[in-house]
């Protein structure tokens, strides 16, 4: 017989030890998160819903255009009519706090991983572990460390949402055209300059795709967070399940989906030209063309003559 390896016991002992040695750390994290989520929730629910609905609609219009604006308006009105406005805003606050923290950890880690092979090698198995571990496994330690309520939910959400931020940032930076990076180096740029002036701007679409993923994963965690006692749509769904209340379960689930679509479409536009910037570009171009006189050819048509595409070597 193979002897039983008390792996679970070890982890449990480690947790006990951590709680006994650095209790202030977890208390600190706990209160900071609590303050952040509470503050944001207050800001979202205290004014009448119409204020934030207008803000969200205008934001959608500026970043994506009229269709998303229309969707936003209808979706949020529907949420209000379902009487889930407060819960939706509580969930939004939780998602935003978790996503911002996850991105704030994931993006710099991705940059480090892209620049140092060793970091990349060390981080990869950890990310694999974080991504494949069933969510519920996080929950028990999270509760141990942070008690019940919104904080363990946020922490579990952050852990769950970090990997895509790291991965897509690293990938984005690695995919930047090597020749362009070489060009910056060849003209004497410092490593920091290369990062700031070349690698990050060129990796931005990929990094932003990572941020989008972070937000979506964070949202997918809200129901789980509801299990831990976090207020919001998750709690609505959890209550519906335990009471076998199909009607409110469907409504809570629908609100999650509506919020998810809004956040996804809105953040998918990060790193790409927005409706506003497209407009501005077109205008400056027209102005420049006008100043240069009528001989300037139409801007798009003569861009990058296909005949001069890089020939195969």
């Amino acid at each position: 017989m193979i002897p039983h390896v008390p792996l679970g016991q070890w982890v449990s002992d480690l947790i006990d030890w951590l709680l006994a040695t650095v209790p202030w750390l977890f208390d600190g994290i706990s209160s900071v998160m609590q303050v952040l989520v509470d503050g944001l929730t207050d800001a979202l629910v205290s004014p009448p819903p119409v204020v934030w609905i207008v803000v969200a609609t205008v934001l959608a219009l500026l970043l994506r255009g009229p269709w998303l604006a229309l969707y936003t308006l209808l979706a949020f009105l529907l949420v209000v009519s379902l009487e889930l406005w407060v819960e939706t805003m509580q969930t939004l606050a939780l998602v935003l706090v978790a996503a911002v923290i996850a991105a704030a950890i994931g993006v710099p880690l991705g940059i480090l991983a892209a620049r140092h092979r060793a970091v990349s090698v060390a981080v990869r198995p950890v990310l694999d572990f974080m991504q494949t571990t069933p969510v519920f496994v996080y929950l028990a330690p999270a509760v141990f460390f942070f008690g019940v309520g919104v904080v363990p939910g946020v922490v579990a959400t952050i852990l769950f949402a970090i990997p895509p931020g790291v991965r897509l940032t690293e990938l984005g930076i690695r995919q930047v055209d090597r020749e362009v990076v070489e060009a910056a180096q060849a003209f004497g740029a410092r490593p920091g300059q290369v990062l700031r002036e070349v690698q990050l701007p060129l990796a931005l679409p990929s990094i932003m795709a990572g941020v989008n993923q972070v937000i979506m994963l964070a949202l997918s965690m809200v129901v789980t967070a509801g299990l831990l006692g976090a207020a919001g749509l998750g709690a609505v769904v959890v209550r519906a399940v335990t009471q076998l209340d199909v009607a409110s379960g469907v409504e809570g689930g629908l609100a999650v989906v509506l919020l998810a679509i809004f956040l996804d479409r809105l953040t998918a536009s990060f790193g790409h030209p927005t409706a506003v910037s497209r407009l501005l570009r077109a205008r400056t171009r027209r102005a420049a063309a006008g100043a240069a006189g009528p001989v300037v050819p139409a801007p798009r048509s003569e861009a990058a003559a296909p005949a001069e595409a890089p020939a195969s070597r």
Partner: peptide
């Protein structure tokens, strides 16, 4: 080395390697 690259030796690349932004 960076100073030499910046002031003494310049390079032109096969695929231009311009900063697109």
């Amino acid at each position: 080395l960076r100073r030499v690259r910046n002031q003494k030796i310049s390079m032109v690349f096969q695929h231009f390697a311009l900063l697109p932004h």
